[in-house]
């Protein structure tokens, strides 16, 4: 995870250095909030049970869990169509599981950032958890940008989110837990106010 973080920083710096100075138009920031329906999970658990034998469980399942999310994005516009920046926030990823994302986002507005039109975005980075190790988080999707006035717009987005986790297992202590990996996938619907 540290290696992934370092790679992201190096890639961003390389991208920043290769673009001409006039491509950087200015600061762009937005507040996004919305709803995420977690629908699919894969998991792999390995722990020592109370009876002193090892338990290995792995599998996948479909389910439905409703979560909310809120994100604050700060970045810059590149040219007329692209934006690049970082965001953080707070989101639910599964029942009783939450994460603080710290990610890079790249977006592309097909008709321009300051005009109404479709857009797409991709995000990737780290998900910080309160009670377990940091995991990865990624999302991609489409949306519609509605320019309200000069310098203010609304983004309506639909996307697919994927987040890793190391959830605790009920009845198993931390010392007995050898491995607990899970990946949750869901569909998110967000509204964003951008400036």
């Amino acid at each position: 995870m540290r290696l992934l973080g370092k790679l992201l920083v190096i890639l961003s710096a390389q991208l920043a250095m290769t673009l001409p100075a006039k491509a950087w138009n200015g600061l762009r920031y937005s507040l996004d909030w919305g709803y995420m329906a977690s629908v699919y999970q894969t998991y792999r658990y390995n722990y020592i049970a109370e009876e002193e034998f090892r338990v290995e469980q792995h599998g996948s399942s479909f389910f439905l869990n409703s979560n909310g999310l809120v994100k604050l994005f700060v970045g810059t516009t590149i040219g007329r169509h692209a934006e690049l920046g970082m965001f953080s926030g707070y989101e639910g990823i599964r029942q009783d599981r939450r994460a603080v994302p710290l990610c890079l986002r790249a977006g592309w507005a097909f008709r321009g950032l300051n005009t109404d039109g479709p857009m797409c975005y991709a995000e990737g980075g780290a998900a910080l958890h309160k009670d377990c190790a940091t995991s990865g988080l990624g999302a991609a999707g489409l949306g519609w940008h509605c320019q309200l006035d000069h310098g203010c717009g609304l983004d309506f987005k639909v996307g697919v989110n994927v987040c890793g986790d190391h959830p605790p297992i009920k009845g198993v202590s931390k010392e007995s837990l050898r491995k607990s990996d899970a990946i949750y996938s869901g569909i998110s619907f967000t509204v964003g106010l951008c400036f």
Partner: peptide
């Protein structure tokens, strides 16, 4: 009051 008939 925004220009696009939208208020925030």
């Amino acid at each position: 009051h925004m220009q696009r008939n939208v208020d925030l």
